[in-house]
Design a protein around this nucleic acid. Structure first.
Lengths: 118, 118
DNA sequence: CCATGATACCTCGAACTGCAAGGTATAGAA
DNA sequence: TTCTATACCTTGCAGTTCGAGGTATCATGG
């Protein structure tokens, strides 16, 4: 929340959005997230570990996520969950994305200028 | 130009896409494009001149656009039109965008994991 | 006649994101 | 024991976009 409002770039934050969305449905760990995004989008979106881990850390630092260690099969994993603040963040990002996608879609499919819907 | 297939940032190229789309519908000049994008998207997307002019020059350099000077009301304008190559480029970018938007939409609205559509 | 604002072009440096590539470490299979 | 998969992490690079600035013309108003 306090964090950063530095960036008016309209296209960014998609990895963050997808990660929050996944974690809201289900507690997950970094390595798993990388594969989940790849598989659920049929590799249309493929964010690597170099993207996911920094995002997880930043989100946790901002209080949008909490983590807990868990050892499974002798493997140490860090599971992340969405906090209420993270849930709000997800809502904001979702809406921003929806607006953007809608605006672009209109431009790509719409007619000349302000179409008269008669 | 022909070579691609690297794994470039999956989110970029939207200004290029919108510019090509506008120009395919209608010959336009830079300053006009800036305002057209802003007004047709209700300012959801607002690319500045610092984005538009370099993109126009790059596209022309790549053979995707042609330009012609025209003086209107004593004002010199540079009108751009889409070439066949530019038209192909637009098709590619459109499809890429459609795939991306669709994949993200599924992730945002879909249920847990890969549900079988029986 | 000059100041201001809109039009119309342009470029540069900064900022940001996302990516590939590398590094560590454990577990299980070959 | 070596290789692959799992699981974590950081760093430097590359490519985009943004903001701020610069030039010049035209119309309007004081």
């Amino acid at each position: 929340m306090a964090g950063r409002e530095t960036n008016p770039n309209f296209m960014n934050g998609v990895p963050e959005l997808l990660i929050l969305r996944l974690l809201q449905q289900e507690e997950m760990y970094g390595y798993e997230i990388v594969q989940a995004i790849r598989s659920r989008t049929d590799a249309v979106v493929a964010v690597g570990e170099g993207v996911v881990y920094p995002v997880l850390h930043a989100l946790e630092h901002d209080g949008a996520l909490t983590s807990r260690r868990k050892t499974v099969n002798g493997r140490s994993r860090i599971y992340y969950s969405v906090t209420p603040a993270g849930s709000r963040r997800l809502s904001e990002l979702s809406e921003t994305w929806a607006n953007l996608a809608s605006a672009i879609h209109k431009m790509l499919t719409g007619g000349q200028h302000g179409e008269a819907i008669s």
